[in-house]
Amino acid sequence: MAEAVLAIRDLCKSFGALRATENVSIDLVPGEIHALIGPNGAGKSTLIHQIAGTLKPDSGEIEFLGKPVSHIGAAERARMGLGRSFQVSSLAPEFSALRNVMLAVQSRQGTSFRFFKPVMRDATLVEPAMAALERAGLKDRARVAAAELSHGERRQLEIAIALALGSRAFLLDEPMAGMGPEGSKTLTGFLDGLRREAPILLVEHDMDAVFALADRISVLVYGRVIATGTVDEIRSDPEVRRAYLGGAE
């Protein structure tokens, strides 16, 4: 197996008596979509927060691109190429879609301390941002304020931002949530191609999408990974069926 882009070892996090993450070890290798599934409250978002750096684990190691990143902040991890979408869209609501993506482009160029040149007339910002919007299928909505975008469009915008960052790995927290069937289908096709660019750690409740996309699946229950394997292995795993799938097939 190829060298892991993202490797998590023995991660633990408790909130009081609640053990939200318990000895979790998973990795992400180039070219794959690794889906993280589990019932509500299993600790999926908590895990994503710890990987992204917005939550500090109690113990354990997170390695990204071969470097330990446990001690560095969310902004620096993002600059290293850890792109992320949020379970509940998190955007600059007053800014247009374009300006939201331009913020990612300027960060990638490492130049937020420029005080005089107007951004809207800066082709080095506008063009890459437009290209990312086009790839995410939002080109026609570039000038619309993020607050006025539909739910599905906001998810697309988050992905456009992650694209513009030139991410080396994507953490996508329920990108399909709240999307209509048509939107989910489009997004599934898009993510399918995206894995060639950078591997994806995908948290998702939409099982059709997960089974269609995932190369590997890890099942999280009460903060623990109870199984990791291919789609077929997970489908037939008796413990998984009992804990999560409920034998409903």
Partner: peptide, 13 residues
Amino acid sequence: QNEVRVASVGIAP
């Protein structure tokens, strides 16, 4: 507007 968003694109607010 959104500090978390700024940090998650890699800019320290």
